[in-house]
Design a protein around this nucleic acid. Sequence first.
DNA 1: AAAAGCCCCTGGACGC
DNA 2: TGCGTCCAGGGGCTTT
Length: 297
Amino acid sequence: MPELPEVETVKNGLAPFMENAVITYVQQNRPDLRFPFPDNFAKRLHGVQVKHLSRRAKYLLGHLTNGEILVMHLGMSGRFIIDDQGGDEKNAKKPGVFLHHNQVHSSHDHVIFNFNTGTVIRYNDVRRFGFMTLVEERKLQQHKFFHSLGVEPLSDDFNAAYLAEKAFQKSTTLKAFLLNQKIIAGLGNIYVCEALHMAGLSPKREAQVLATSQGKANRKTEALVRAVKTVLQKAISAGGSTLRDHRQADGSLGYFQHSFQVYGRENEPCLKAKCQGQVSRIVQSGRSTFFCKTCQK
DNA sequence: AAAAGCCCCTGGACGC
DNA sequence: TGCGTCCAGGGGCTTT
């Protein structure tokens, strides 16, 4: 479930169960996900308390009392399922996590965290594009997963001047430019499509349209920055998007997918006011792009 | 250096 | 019912 709003939602859903809880036992069911687990991964977590959770780009970070950070990435299909032995029904409506009171385990439950509170949290990932590792807190920024990451799109560091500077003289498409985590960290296929539509920009345009010949911002840069922030904020407010998961009916689903303007709407009418166009689907760098040829120029 | 492809993996939807 | 093809919210690595 993995773009920035979904990871943020998962973080918020897990926090009441993980923060301040002590990990008593970790059951690691295979040696690797996308990458091998680090040496003694499970053992290094035993008896360690989770101070708090945070998010950087699409990474979920568990800050531990032993000075390490549990780095988790959900890939395409990763999710967390909570078996709340305590039966805390108040938390049952949190989006982003799946709450179960019956222990239905699946062969895709790869890591199972047991806490001193009785809560059990399972990491389930059918396609195994996700991964986990442990990094010393003070070395996080220089770690290979983090050292080249771009700015957080919801921070003040993401602004028109920054975007113009990065786009200056770049011939890559706007779609690929926005998907590049080294420039903006956390956007994925859905929210890039949605933001470009909101900004009225074609995904096929060259990124350099976002900069003047001096490398400064222009109206398009301003519009795109505003669109990215707006679409992400709305998605987070809605608890993220839930796709292709019709099994869970326990109130744990985000609902931003009902607000998609273009994503997944091939051949349907453009929803922008006064636009008579319809949504097209093309393939860019091997992935679907949805956009309206009429109002995205 | 920048940009474009390829690949990892499983399973659901669809056409025949 | 079964089989083949395509597709899926990511990103690292290799090739041009």
